[in-house]
Computed example of a mutant assay.
Amino acid sequence: MPSNLRKAHQALDKAMLKVVGLKANASDEQVLEDLFTRYSELTRGLLDAEPARRATARRPRA
């Protein structure tokens, strides 16, 4: 990987860890655990409700 791309990835990783409140030395497992926990919390209950029925267009009678 080119060094400028590697540096960009490192900067992005550092910024992401700061945003989610993880330490700079967090392991991949810790990062994934945190992200999946957040995802689970954000999506909890979304599929519990009954889906809305889609209205169908009626054809005019001939």
Rank of each mutant, 00 (worst) to 15 (best):
L5F: 08
G45R: 02
H9G: 10
F36D: 03
E33L: 08
K14C: 06
T56F: 08
M16I: 09
F36N: 10
A57D: 11
L22K: 00
H9S: 07
T37K: 11
A24Q: 14
L17A: 00
A55M: 05
R53H: 05
A52H: 04
L47I: 10
L12V: 15
P51Y: 03
S40N: 09
A55W: 03
A57G: 06
L12H: 12
K23Y: 02
K14H: 07
R44S: 10
N25G: 03
F36I: 04
L35Q: 09
Y39M: 11
A55F: 04
N4T: 15
T37W: 05
P60Q: 02
L46D: 10
G45K: 01
N25R: 06
H9I: 11
M1K: 15
K14D: 04
T43N: 11
D13S: 10
V19P: 01
Q10C: 09
E50M: 05
A15T: 05
L5D: 12
A8N: 15
S27I: 01
A49P: 02
L35R: 15
A55N: 07
A8P: 02
P60I: 02
V31S: 00
N4W: 13
G21V: 01
D34F: 02
A8F: 12
R54N: 04
R61Q: 05
T43W: 07
A49S: 14
L17R: 01
L5K: 14
R53Q: 14
L5Q: 10
S3K: 14
Q30D: 10
E33G: 03
A24L: 03
E33S: 08
R54W: 09
R54M: 11
L42W: 06
A26H: 00
A62N: 15
L42T: 08
D34N: 08
S40V: 09
A24G: 03
G45L: 02
L47E: 07
L35M: 13
A24T: 03
K7V: 09
A57Q: 14
K7M: 13
A49E: 13
T37M: 06
K18C: 01
R58Q: 15
R53S: 12
A15Q: 12
P51I: 04
A52V: 06
P60S: 03
S40C: 06
Q10P: 02
S40F: 07
E50W: 05
A62F: 10
Q10R: 12
